[in-house]
Nucleic acid binder design. Structure first.
Length: 784
DNA sequence: CCGTGCTAAGTTTTT
DNA sequence: CTTAGCACGG
């Protein structure tokens, strides 16, 4: 057997290679891996396709393969591994390191591990000048993209009605994912004609802003590597081995990129599972898997079909669901584990019941040795998380929503980031526009518009325009001109003083000198306090970054923020129940999983039900969700669901029909006897938990309060309380409807136990379900 | 120019 | 139901 030596021949001689590879010899590997896994690990450099079913030890194979390559002499700095998320990249790096240190006493320093986008960014920072990109370019996220394109469409005088930003942007993105640059974009109809024009101007503006977007990172890198510049040749020879995880979710540009990066040695390993392809809408192309075999004649294909994660019932359900797809090659996972617990299917009346079911189940399992981190609750769309949060919160169960509206998306964070971006890159027009009047400094929209026109007409950068306007007396009235000049001065000062500072210190300086801190302090509202807290938290994150990054820098931090994925925020150490969309759950596993909302038009989603191949993707999504569970899987559906205001009838999802009956145990909630009569209906559900529905009930006003018009302002900060008045009730001395809303929970009036104080501030005593009575400082957002 | 209040609009999944 | 965008009055 010479196979295990092959990887080492390049850098080491035979005996040296054999000695060092000892811990990774076929015999040693056979003790830890199954035969298919061993084959994948030992395959000599050269094209290798690993079809890895869910839970089949894929990560193990990748880790061992990388470690073994290094152990047999490969230079870790010449090894590239591409993962789907930053989190996966970090874990992979760590495991390879552990494996190597533990067995060989050597490390894997310099190993290139990252997402496609992070890898592309890294390549462009180093070699991007060859394609006209400056080293200090910034990355625009989708929000920036939208705003920039909106501006472009306005300048092109394109009617918004016929060409919504959203649609034009997705057309541009689609083109980019397929490798079409603005120049090569050809139009076949009127819509494409407009898209093409917009695309070109959009790219022009991006370049002027010294920025690129997600698709641009990949496309520009491809262009760079495919070229014949010295840089292109250098990069093409840069890596001896390339490995791609989640290959089924790569798009055309990504595939072409890895082909080019690996063409020198031909050592390319791709790992994927067509049944887990869930990003077709983002340009992913399952055909890449088929093309791989075509493009690499003689490629070895290894199938991993033994599942080590889930129990028999769960795996049978997963197989039953995925087998209905026609666009797939046959594959069947098996396990040697026992049947385990049957799958629990809950059928309830409303989404509240569903949430209550989830919460009560978890609550009941905790005393029996389960920790909160063992549980995950999945849903198809982010909007479904709210009720679930309410139910968990009501029971004081620790939970964390992974992804969704991100911390970085909050206005105050974006403002601070806007400053930092403008400091890092003076040409970032969007960033400048965002912060030019934050805090309010008297530069209104008309001034901003004038500057915008100037940029357009004279084809100058945003910063040049600002400088110009601040000096030239012709362009603006004295008042605004002085204000702009002061802003220009502020930015100059920040840039000069911030040049040597780390991100955290720079952020603090910005917070201070921009007047943002003072402005928030002056507001003196709970909301402003919350914003300040968020900003301080953000600065703390920067400090954390400075501690752990290899070479912390402002650009590095901004890049990390731009390329952060939703799941990167998942930290099992938090010890919380995890809530996330099914997409975010990909790649994770949990002992106990709840998959909610199994109704037609929810899962599968309404946007997919009319299209067979879209339904197949939903089915794969369902398969992904089900295969996340290790020992317990709960599925749930309800008979009516309120979604964005209106109530929809809940029809059982088609996926439920595919479940093997013998693996499922149903819990069906009886229809309440008094259908539609809420009020104080409270009782015991069939699963033993408490369930209740409370609609606001009539109650008396605190003494001394008079009637007021109805107000429904929403609370914006935790701890803030909104008290609602209902004008219709004012004539009745029996009282006003009073409901209390916290940020995440509503309280019926029955829960309001007392009041203290008068005026805008008062203390309200509330009964929290399950946790007793608490007194909270309340504030009327609208004046009584 | 700023803040408030209203209306209208949208609502899958995300690097 | 929520949010974003807009018109109006200060």
């Amino acid at each position: 057997m010479d196979v295990e030596l092959a990887a080492g021949v390049e850098k080491t001689d035979r005996t040296e290679g054999a000695r060092r590879a000892e811990p990774f010899s076929p015999e040693a590997l056979a003790r830890e891996l199954n035969p298919a896994q061993v084959e994948a690990v030992l395959h000599p450099p050269g094209p290798l396709l690993v079809i890895a079913g869910a839970g089949s030890g894929k990560t193990r194979v990748i880790t061992y393969r990388l470690a073994r390559l290094v152990a047999t002499g490969a230079d870790p700095r010449r090894l590239l591994a591409v993962t789907f998320t930053n989190k996966a990249a970090g874990e992979l790096r760590e495991r390879v390191d552990q494996l190597l240190y533990g067995r060989m006493g050597i490390g894997s320093r310099g190993l290139w591990v990252g997402t496609f986008h992070a890898t592309a960014a890294r390549i462009l920072r180093q070699w991007g000048t060859a394609v006209g990109l400056r080293k200090d370019f910034v990355i625009y996220d989708d929000d920036d993209q939208k705003r920039l394109l909106g501006r472009v469409l306005t300048d092109l005088k394109v009617p918004e009605r016929m060409f919504p930003v959203r649609q034009v942007l997705s057309a541009i993105d689609r083109a980019k994912n397929q490798g079409l640059s603005a120049d090569s974009f050809s139009s076949s109809d009127y819509f494409d004609d407009v898209v093409g024009k917009a695309y070109r101007l959009y790219e022009e503006r991006l370049a002027a802003a010294n920025a690129t977007d997600f698709g641009g990172l990949l496309l520009t890198t491809l262009k760079l590597v495919a070229g014949s510049t010295p840089a292109a040749l250098e990069i093409a020879q840069r890596f001896d081995h390339v490995l791609v995880d989640e290959f089924q979710d790569t798009n055309s540009v990504q595939y072409r990129l890895v082909r080019l990066l690996s063409r020198q040695t031909g050592s390319i390993t791709v790992v994927g599972d067509e049944d887990q392809s869930i990003y077709r809408w983002r340009g992913a192309d399952i055909r890449n898997i088929l093309d791989f075999e075509r493009d690499h004649p003689g490629a070895r294909v290894v199938k991993l079909e033994q599942n080590y994660r889930s129990t028999g019932h769960i795996l049978r359900a997963a197989n039953a669901i995925i087998e209905k797809n026609s666009e797939r090659r046959p594959k069947r996972l098996f396990t040697e584990a026992g049947d385990g617990d049957p799958i629990v299917l809950f059928e309830g009346e409303t989404e509240r019941d569903e949430a209550e079911f989830v919460a009560s189940r978890i609550d009941a399992a905790l005393p029996e040795g389960r920790a909160p981190r063992d549980f995950a609750v999945f849903y198809r769309t982010n909007a479904q998380s709210r009720v679930l949060e309410d139910a968990l919160r009501a029971r004081d169960l620790p939970y964390a929503v992974v992804g969704g509206t991100r911390f970085f998306d909050r206005a105050e964070i974006k403002n601070l980031l806007g400053y930092m971006r403008a400091v890092a890159n003076p040409d970032d027009g969007l960033a400048l526009q965002r912060i030019i009047n934050v805090p309010a400094r008297g530069i209104g929209s008309s001034t901003v518009d004038k500057i915008g026109e100037l940029i357009f007409e004279r084809k100058i950068s945003a910063w040049q325009a600002l400088e110009l306007v601040g000096q030239d007396e012709e362009l603006l009235a004295t008042g605004p001109r002085k204000k702009v000049a002061a802003f220009v001065e502020l930015m100059r000062r920040l840039r000069a003083e911030g040049a040597t500072l780390g991100p955290a210190s720079l952020a603090e300086k910005i917070f201070e000198e921009s007047g943002y801190r003072d402005a928030l302090a002056a507001e003196a509202t709970l909301e402003a306090e919350g914003r300040t807290e968020n900003l301080l938290e953000f600065v703390a994150q920067m400090r954390e970054y400075e501690r752990e990054a290899e070479e912390p820098s402002l650009h590095g931090f901004l890049e990390r923020v731009a390329l952060a994925s939703d799941v990167d925020g998942y930290d099992p150490e938090k010890g919380a129940i995890s809530l996330m969309t099914v997409h975010t759950a990909k790649g994770l596993e949990f002992p106990v999983v709840f998959l909610t909302g199994l109704e037609e038009r929810i899962f599968p989603h309404a946007r997919s039900v009319d299209d067979d191949s879209a339904v197949e993707e939903e089915r794969r999504l369902c398969y992904v969700a089900v295969t996340r569970a290790r020992t317990q899987l709960h599925l749930s559906r309800v008979r009516r669901r309120r979604l964005s205001g209106q109530e929809l009838p809940g029809i059982p999802s088609r996926f439920l029909r595919d479940l093997p009956a013998e693996s499922v145990e149903s819990i069906v909630m009886a229809r309440p006897a008094e259908y539609g009569n809420y009020g104080s209906s409270e009782g015991r559900g069939p699963w033993g938990g408490r369930w209740s529905r409370d609609e606001p009930q009539a109650s008396r006003l605190p003494p001394g309060r008079s009637a007021a018009p109805r107000s429904t302002a929403a609370a914006r900060t935790p701890g803030e309380i909104v008290v609602e008045y209902d004008a219709e009730e004012t004539s009745s001395p029996m009282g006003l409807q009073v409901g209390v809303k916290l940020r995440h929970a509503s309280f019926g009036v029955g829960d309001v136990r007392g009041w203290q104080g008068s005026g805008a501030d008062l203390k309200v005593t509330l009964r929290f379900p399950g946790t007793g009575v608490k007194t909270i400082l309340a504030r009327f957002l609208s004046k009584p």
